[in-house]
Amino acid sequence: MNIVLFYHSLASDWNHGNAHFLRGTVKELLKRGHNLKVYEPEGNWSLANLVKDHGKEKAQEFTKYYPMLKARFYNPVKPDYDAMLKGADLVIVHEWNEPELVATVGELKDKYGYKLLFHDTHHRAVSEVESMGKYDFANYDGCLAFGEVISNIYRNNKWIEKVWTWHEAADAGLFKPQPSAEKEGDLVWIGNWGDNERTEELMEFLIKPVKELKLKAKVYGVRYPDEALRALKDAGIEYGGWLPNYKAPEVFAKYKVTVHVPRGPYVKWLPGIPTIRPFEALSCGITLVSSPWDDAENLFTPGEDFHMAKNSEEMKAQLQRVLFDEGLAQKLAERGRKTILARHTCAHRVNELEDIMKQLGFNEALIYPMQTKTLEA
């Protein structure tokens, strides 16, 4: 099948956590014999910031970890839609694209004859409802929403007729345990400070427990304001700046535990959506302790895949437990990785996408090209 995907960026994960799942999905589709073209706008915000802070050479590094992936750039001022869309069977537009592109790709659907899906991985549907009005979904065949609560919002508002819940998942081939690494500290946290969506939570569930337990800890991420950097320094936490997403397995292997601190909008409005971070951590086989979130869709088993802490004191207690009980820590880490491999890999999500392709009316020769080639041989 000829599949065209419009991403904000395939090449950059600078403040772009979706890159993990998007890259992993493309890898899996390529492995199954599909022809893929992934387009991102020239000068996009994520890649521009990566190049500004770390240089063009660093921006090319992702190809060493993903040699099969190729980012294609288009002029966002004057896109050549004919070159991008001609011959496509399926087009998927990720939500981090301009409304103009979303609308135009929809308007051209009949001309080029493809099926068209919108992929939503953001809390905008509840936090910025007015901004959703800028999107023209009139010609879309369906939406891939990364949680059932988002799916229901689309259905209730009748934005798109067909909606499928399509959770993020781990690229388990790259994000895997590296047990031989020497430990450099107790705790590591990988995440961006962002737009003050979890400032209080980070203070309560990360900075305060680390300071009071006197743990050797390190934090990676971008968009940390001065007050955040001062808080880290006061707690004795080393700040590592931007970490390329594909290096997360190497870093997780050097620490004993990590924490998950979801952003406020997800906790408040979007039960069942953990974002990519716990998938990453569990896939890498590091022990995880999480601040509260409602696993409304039973993606994991809290208490077995990871521990949950309701407040700062509980976080301290849980961290102490796993740091001083290696058997417990290992049991949690192994169970978490097992759950990922059983239910939450990019391969699982592509299996789900193949079922969606069937519902869209594609024949099996297009859905399963490798099987067709085997029969022909």
Score class of each variant (00 low, 15 high):
residue 290 S to P: 03
residue 311 N to Q: 13
residue 334 E to K: 14
residue 128 E to L: 12
residue 329 A to K: 04
residue 26 V to W: 02
residue 140 Y to A: 03
residue 374 T to R: 02
residue 50 L to I: 03
residue 235 A to F: 02
residue 158 K to Q: 11
residue 211 K to F: 04
residue 173 G to Y: 02
residue 171 D to C: 00
residue 38 V to N: 01
residue 265 P to G: 07
residue 202 L to N: 08
residue 74 Y to W: 08
residue 178 Q to V: 10
residue 198 R to A: 12
residue 162 K to E: 12
residue 225 P to I: 08
residue 143 C to I: 13
residue 54 H to L: 15
residue 353 L to H: 09
residue 99 P to H: 06
residue 89 D to Q: 00
residue 337 R to K: 09
residue 62 F to Y: 15
residue 119 H to M: 00
residue 89 D to N: 14
residue 172 A to L: 07
residue 48 A to Q: 01
residue 312 S to A: 09
residue 358 K to F: 10
residue 334 E to I: 15
residue 215 L to H: 02
residue 65 Y to M: 01
residue 362 F to E: 05
residue 287 T to S: 02
residue 5 L to A: 11
residue 300 F to P: 05
residue 22 L to M: 15
residue 192 N to F: 00
residue 224 Y to W: 14
residue 247 K to P: 00
residue 321 R to Y: 10
residue 242 W to R: 05
residue 102 V to P: 06
residue 221 G to Q: 12
residue 69 L to C: 03
residue 235 A to W: 06
residue 208 K to N: 01
residue 358 K to L: 06
residue 304 E to L: 14
residue 298 N to R: 15
residue 355 D to A: 14
residue 140 Y to H: 06
residue 133 G to D: 14
residue 28 E to H: 00
residue 131 S to Y: 14
residue 52 K to Y: 10
residue 179 P to C: 06
residue 163 V to I: 11
residue 293 W to K: 07
residue 223 R to F: 06
residue 320 Q to G: 15
residue 350 V to H: 02
residue 343 R to G: 06
residue 371 Q to G: 08
residue 227 E to V: 13
residue 302 P to Q: 09
residue 280 E to I: 09
residue 243 L to E: 04
residue 10 L to H: 04
residue 188 V to R: 00
residue 20 H to V: 14
residue 275 T to Q: 07
residue 84 M to L: 02
residue 110 D to I: 07
residue 214 K to E: 15
residue 4 V to F: 04
residue 341 L to W: 03
residue 323 L to F: 04
residue 238 E to W: 03
residue 348 H to I: 11
residue 317 A to Q: 11
residue 13 D to C: 00
residue 367 I to Q: 06
residue 120 D to R: 05
residue 129 V to F: 07
residue 126 V to S: 06
residue 129 V to R: 15
residue 218 K to E: 10
residue 177 P to T: 00
residue 143 C to L: 12
residue 97 N to G: 02
residue 169 A to Q: 01
residue 11 A to R: 12
residue 70 K to V: 08
residue 281 A to H: 03
residue 266 Y to M: 13
residue 315 M to K: 12
residue 238 E to P: 08
residue 283 S to D: 10
residue 104 T to L: 10
residue 87 G to W: 08
